[in-house]
Every structure is written in C-alpha cells, then in structure tokens.
C-alpha cells in the first residue's frame, strides 16, 4: 500500500539532492581547475592602461617588471579590426616629441621599438598623409610595459591595443607575481571559457 511521503521526507530528499548537486558542481569545478582550464587573464576594463576614463595618468608597467620571466608573459596586441590605421598613431609616435623635417614626431613611444609601422594598400609616394598605416606589435620585443596601450586609449586613440597573457610563455604560477602587485586587481584567474568569452 502506497503511503504519501511526509513533508519532512520531501524536504529531506530535496536537501540531499541539493547537496549531491552542489558537491558534484564543486568536484567538476575542481577537476577543471586541476586540468588547467583556469588561466590567468587581464581584465581590460580594470587595467589602468586600457580602462576607459582613466586618462592623464602614467602607464602602469608592473606586468613588464614583475613577471618572473625575463621577458614578461604579458604582451600588447593591436586589434586591427578596431585600429584607425592613422597617419600619426599616438601609440607608435611620442607625439610630444619635436616634429622632424617630414612633419612627423621625431621619437617613437615604445622603449623597445616593438611596433612596426607600414603603409598599406595603394601608397601615395608624394603625400604620406594620404595613406593608411598598419601597426603591428612584435611579440619577441614587446614586454608588456603598457605605454602603447595607454596612448591608444580613447579619447586619444581607439583603444585598439590591449595587454594579453601569452599562454605559450606563462608558467601558470599558483601565486602569480603580477597578480600580487596589480593595484587594480586586473590580473585575475578565470576559467578558460570565461577568458575566451571575454577575449
């Protein structure tokens, strides 16, 4: 003969079910983390070099100076889809330097000369302002100092340059030395899928 379960029994089953599901989720999370699916990443909305609104401040170079590697595991990348391909790029040139005989800033911004500038498309030999330019960051030279990221940020630029972690170099330290010193808590460990979604 079937008896209807008491209220106490129903609640007990529900609680046990919730516990099993919770433990399962935790186990899955730990398993994913253990398998390396959680990675260090830079949150561009927090990093002072790329965070909109933070203007008139010095670029933060802690990613370059505090990584345990000789060449930091952080580097800058230029999103060409967002880049304005400007004649005078404030991330390439030191726009406060004196103007040379060609009317361009006489000095570059990158201390490691890691950015390459070249005209693209059909090139006007007579008027260099009549060209679009492609700016490519050499990852072998870039140490992630953030100077170009800050200079490219709106309103000065189009915020097409950002800092990223190079996972081929990153040692995936348990206590990342950059994350420890980052004043903006922009260097964070996230599951790989979240990183890719943000990326």
């Amino acid at each position: 003969m079937n008896q209807r379960p008491t209220r106490r029994e129903v609640l007990g089953h529900a609680a046990r079910g919730a516990t099993v599901v919770g433990l399962g989720g935790l186990g899955l999370y730990l398993a994913r983390k253990a398998s390396g699916e959680s990675v260090w990443q830079i949150n561009c909305d927090k990093c002072v070099n790329s965070r909109l609104g933070a203007v008139g401040v010095e670029a933060c170079d802690l990613c370059a100076t505090d990584c345990v590697l000789a060449l930091s595991a952080v580097r800058a990348v230029n999103d060409h889809a967002k880049c304005g391909r400007c004649y005078i790029c404030p991330a390439y040139f030191d726009i406060k330097s004196a103007v040379d005989e060609e009317g361009l800033p006489s000095q570059k911004l990158c201390p490691r000369d890691a950015i390459e500038r070249k005209p693209i498309g059909w090139i006007d030999p007579d008027d260099p302002a009549n060209n679009f330019y492609e700016y490519t960051i050499d990852e072998k030279l870039c140490n992630g100092c953030g100077e170009c990221v800050m200079a490219c940020k709106e309103p000065a630029g189009l915020t097409s340059i950002r800092l990223v972690v190079r996972y081929d170099l990153c040692l995936d330290c348990n206590r990342c030395s950059i994350a420890i010193v980052c004043p903006d808590e922009a260097y964070d460990r996230k599951p790989l899928d979240e990183h890719e979604a943000a990326g």
Binding site: V99, G103, G157
Partner: peptide
C-alpha cells in the same frame, strides 16, 4: 593645418 604636439598652433594626437 599641420601636426604638432608641442606648438599649440598645430594639431596634436591622431586626429
């Protein structure tokens, strides 16, 4: 008009 990041008579920045 011309680019110049120092002389205020010129125009600075990318654009």
């Amino acid at each position: 008009g011309r680019f110049d990041g120092r002389d205020p008579a010129g125009f600075s920045g990318c654009c």
